[in-house]
Design a protein around this nucleic acid. Sequence first.
DNA 1: TAAATATATGAATACATGCTCAATTGTTGT
DNA 2: ACAACAATTGAGCATGTATTCATATATTTA
Lengths: 118, 118
Amino acid sequence: MGKNLTCEITCIHTEIVNKIKSKMLDDEEVTKISSLFKALGDPTRFKILYCLRFREMCVCDISAILNLSQSATSHQLRVLRNLRLVKYRKEGKMVFYSLEDDHIFRILDEGLNHIKHD
Amino acid sequence: MGKNLTCEITCIHTEIVNKIKSKMLDDEEVTKISSLFKALGDPTRFKILYCLRFREMCVCDISAILNLSQSATSHQLRVLRNLRLVKYRKEGKMVFYSLEDDHIFRILDEGLNHIKHD
DNA sequence: TAAATATATGAATACATGCTCAATTGTTGT
DNA sequence: ACAACAATTGAGCATGTATTCATATATTTA
């Protein structure tokens, strides 16, 4: 519990803590941004987005590429849809997914840069 | 299971699937990069990194800022340490943590940009 | 050396999450 | 209208994971 932290812990640098606290993002922002990263943090979802980097694709093709059941693919696409990371368009029985905007591109690329440097 | 996907599903665009499959990252790369994003995908860990964006800090101060127990803070710092997202330096009883390199900065910023645009 | 302090760690628990399976919706073609 | 098909959805299950609690380690100070 946070309530009694001030009793248990004594090494706090009060000025620093207050200064950084004032710069901290509010909870809503933190929730938003960590949801975004959490979405990219699952290998399946990352692969889906990485595929869609090249072109729009139907659910069927995505599941074939990932070697994943079509149901599981669809479930994950819903997560990405809810976070507005992908958009879709219907064409007959099929649904084509694509990346929502260019930001996603850049975030994926920063991640790729990071592991290349490691 | 992926084994019988080709039997169950019939709408696959074979050329596209093969083309994208050849461009797909290998599993090791995907694991690496999604581990990175997963680390940022937890609100607590994101806050820790966001704090460290401003300056190095001791465990005690971090836990005070986040209003989180010292133990929980330490556990999460270990995760970040193992992923080489943070480094640390000892000074007496205290341990000061800081961001490992500038890449982390940029990734955090891309994420922030994204939610600002939403 | 003993007490106090800062951090780390292991076990346990409560909760989140990704997949499968079964069933459903919506569209096309006969 | 009916069968086939692409995709979605809900329930259930098995696995992960974030926190807490208790304890251990390491450093400083008395």
